[in-house]
Amino acid sequence: MSSHTPAGDDLVHLNATDALQLFAGRALSPVELMRAVIERVEKVEPHINAFTERLCDEALEQARHAEARYLGEDGLAPPRPLEGIPVAAKEKHAIVGRTLTEGSLAHEGRIATENAPVIDRILGAGGIIHARTTTPEFSLSTYTHSRMWGITRNPWNPDFTPGGSSGGAGASLAAGTTLLASACDIGGSTRIPAADLPHHRRPRLARGRRPRERQGRGARRGSGRHPVERRDHALQHPQPLSRAQRSLRNVGLGSPHRPPDPRPPLRRPRRLPHRQGTGDPRPWSYAQIEDGMP
């Protein structure tokens, strides 16, 4: 490791852009960074409660693979835009084969059958998901606690909230337990934690911003096809949180969030099962039929 490489707490508080530059210069290994992040998680997570699930073993294996890419080992493709960067994923961003409860006891034991688009893009860009972050129930609050996961606390003052609904994402960045985090926003779920949680260098977490996109002829401004989960509201924008604005500009929005996901942003409208054949005059609904929700 170079004498210019950060160590200890400075290492886990790197921003993603600087980490990628160190990886490319072989001054820092993705394995070394991941081990430091995991050590930090074990130290502070019991006091912060930002994570619903840790994927440390899988993350270390992926970090070894990322290291091999940077070393140019035979038969491996070159590094991707987020190669080796630890990413904490919001629990509501589905990962196939893992829980998808959204903090609700009503969904306890529910397992995702496909990845959310934002997860596919993070993984496709080489990001390593080492943990999943807490939210309030159904992400419908500006603070982060639930009966399922308990209270997520602000790393700077545990008597205060980290905001919400992406409070676990913001808290993990401020605590040094990730370098990037996935979030999403309708009414401030990214922007509130970004404003509430400065990191240790004192600039704020990079500002959350709902992107404006267009799709097709005559599309209404802001109604473009962004990478929403197929079961989610059309106005919700998944987006990254980072410690530095340039990390979002250089590797965040540019890699895992573009181009648009080809899957339809909303399900086709269908009549609710309990209305069929009943003469109920109420119209169509975007029902989650497969979830058995009336």
Results as ranks from 00 to 15, higher is better:
residue 1 M to C: 03
residue 1 M to K: 01
residue 3 S to T: 12
residue 3 S to H: 08
residue 7 A to D: 06
residue 9 D to L: 11
residue 13 H to K: 01
residue 15 N to M: 00
residue 16 A to P: 02
residue 17 T to Q: 03
residue 19 A to L: 02
residue 22 L to V: 02
residue 23 F to H: 01
residue 24 A to V: 05
residue 24 A to N: 07
residue 25 G to K: 11
residue 28 L to G: 04
residue 28 L to H: 02
residue 28 L to M: 03
residue 32 E to S: 11
residue 34 M to T: 09
residue 34 M to I: 03
residue 38 I to H: 05
residue 38 I to T: 02
residue 41 V to R: 03
residue 43 K to G: 01
residue 44 V to L: 10
residue 51 F to T: 07
residue 51 F to S: 06
residue 54 R to Y: 09
residue 56 C to Y: 13
residue 57 D to H: 15
residue 58 E to I: 11
residue 58 E to F: 09
residue 59 A to K: 07
residue 59 A to P: 04
residue 59 A to T: 11
residue 61 E to G: 13
residue 63 A to S: 11
residue 63 A to L: 09
residue 63 A to K: 09
residue 63 A to D: 04
residue 71 L to S: 11
residue 71 L to F: 08
residue 71 L to C: 12
residue 78 P to D: 06
residue 81 P to E: 06
residue 81 P to C: 10
residue 82 L to D: 03
residue 83 E to S: 12
residue 89 A to F: 02
residue 90 K to D: 14
residue 93 H to A: 15
residue 98 R to P: 04
residue 105 L to R: 15
residue 110 R to D: 13
residue 112 A to R: 07
residue 112 A to S: 11
residue 114 E to I: 12
residue 116 A to T: 08
residue 118 V to Y: 00
residue 119 I to E: 05
residue 120 D to C: 08
residue 120 D to A: 14
residue 121 R to C: 03
residue 122 I to R: 04
residue 124 G to D: 13
residue 127 G to H: 05
residue 128 I to T: 05
residue 130 H to N: 09
residue 133 T to D: 08
residue 133 T to M: 07
residue 134 T to M: 03
residue 135 T to G: 04
residue 135 T to Y: 03
residue 139 S to P: 02
residue 139 S to C: 15
residue 144 T to W: 00
residue 148 M to W: 05
residue 151 I to M: 10
residue 152 T to D: 02
residue 155 P to N: 08
residue 156 W to M: 10
residue 158 P to G: 02
residue 159 D to W: 09
residue 159 D to Q: 10
residue 159 D to L: 13
residue 163 G to T: 04
residue 164 G to M: 01
residue 165 S to V: 05
residue 166 S to D: 09
residue 173 L to K: 00
residue 174 A to Y: 00
residue 175 A to P: 00
residue 181 A to D: 06
residue 182 S to M: 00
residue 185 D to S: 12
residue 186 I to C: 04
residue 188 G to A: 05
residue 190 T to H: 01
residue 190 T to K: 00
residue 196 D to L: 10
residue 196 D to M: 13
residue 197 L to S: 01
residue 198 P to D: 08
residue 200 H to W: 01
residue 203 P to Y: 03
residue 204 R to K: 08
residue 205 L to G: 01
residue 210 R to N: 10
residue 215 Q to H: 15
residue 217 R to I: 13
residue 217 R to P: 09
residue 219 A to E: 13
residue 221 R to E: 14
residue 222 G to I: 09
residue 228 V to Q: 06
residue 231 R to Y: 15
residue 233 H to K: 06
residue 235 L to N: 10
residue 235 L to C: 06
residue 235 L to T: 12
residue 236 Q to Y: 01
residue 237 H to M: 12
residue 239 Q to S: 10
residue 243 R to H: 07
residue 246 R to P: 00
residue 246 R to N: 06
residue 253 L to E: 13
residue 258 R to P: 00
residue 259 P to M: 08
residue 259 P to R: 09
residue 262 P to L: 07
residue 267 R to S: 09
residue 267 R to M: 14
residue 268 R to A: 15
residue 268 R to I: 11
residue 271 R to W: 03
residue 278 T to S: 14
residue 283 P to I: 03
residue 285 S to I: 02
residue 287 A to E: 12
residue 292 G to F: 07
residue 294 P to R: 00
